[in-house]
Amino acid sequence: DEIHIHFNGVTIEFRGLTEEAKKALEEAIKRGASEEELKELARRLIK
């Protein structure tokens, strides 16, 4: 299970995320999180 985020022309790929983690990332994107914020969020979620 993986998710691809297209962000300002950059694709960020995450693997092994739970549904909750995906929802958290989607919410962050909707509120306009920066690419760095998304990566940091993903790091926290994957652990």
Rank of each mutant, 00 (worst) to 15 (best):
D1N: 13
D1H: 14
D1W: 14
D1Y: 14
E2R: 13
E2K: 14
E2M: 14
E2Q: 13
E2V: 15
I3R: 05
I3H: 09
I3G: 05
H4E: 07
H4R: 13
H4I: 14
I5K: 03
I5L: 12
I5M: 07
I5H: 04
H6I: 14
H6G: 07
F7G: 04
F7E: 04
F7M: 12
F7Q: 04
F7I: 13
F7C: 04
F7V: 13
F7R: 02
N8K: 04
N8R: 03
N8D: 12
N8S: 06
N8A: 08
N8C: 05
N8H: 11
N8Q: 12
N8G: 11
G9D: 06
G9A: 03
G9K: 05
G9T: 03
G9Y: 03
G9R: 01
V10E: 08
V10Q: 11
V10W: 03
V10L: 09
T11W: 11
I12D: 05
I12V: 10
I12A: 04
I12L: 11
E13A: 11
E13K: 15
E13G: 07
E13S: 14
E13R: 12
E13T: 14
F14S: 02
F14M: 06
F14H: 04
F14V: 08
F14T: 06
F14K: 01
R15A: 10
R15Y: 10
R15F: 11
G16T: 06
G16N: 10
G16S: 04
L17Q: 03
L17P: 01
L17K: 01
T18A: 08
T18S: 13
T18L: 04
T18R: 08
E19H: 13
E19Q: 12
E19I: 11
E19L: 11
E20Y: 12
E20G: 11
E20H: 06
E20P: 05
E20V: 07
E20D: 09
A21G: 15
A21W: 09
A21R: 00
A21M: 14
A21I: 15
K22F: 10
K22V: 13
K22H: 06
K22S: 04
K22L: 12
K23A: 14
K23M: 11
K23C: 04
A24P: 01
A24I: 15
A24H: 08
A24C: 11
A24E: 15
A24N: 03
L25C: 01
L25Y: 03
E26F: 09
E26W: 11
E27M: 09
E27P: 00
E27G: 07
E27L: 09
A28V: 03
A28Q: 02
A28N: 00
A28E: 04
I29L: 07
I29K: 06
K30S: 11
K30P: 00
K30D: 10
K30T: 10
R31W: 09
R31M: 14
R31P: 00
G32E: 02
G32C: 01
G32N: 03
G32T: 01
G32M: 02
G32H: 03
G32W: 01
A33R: 01
E35V: 14
E35H: 10
E35D: 10
E35P: 12
E35I: 15
E36A: 11
E36R: 06
E36G: 05
L38E: 00
L38Y: 01
L38P: 00
L38K: 00
K39G: 05
K39A: 09
K39W: 15
K39H: 09
K39E: 08
K39S: 05
K39D: 05
E40Y: 02
L41K: 00
L41M: 08
A42Y: 15
A42M: 15
A42T: 03
A42F: 15
A42H: 12
R43K: 12
R43Y: 14
R44V: 10
R44N: 13
R44F: 10
L45G: 01
L45M: 05
L45D: 00
L45I: 08
I46Q: 07
K47T: 15
K47E: 15
K47A: 15
K47F: 15
K47N: 15
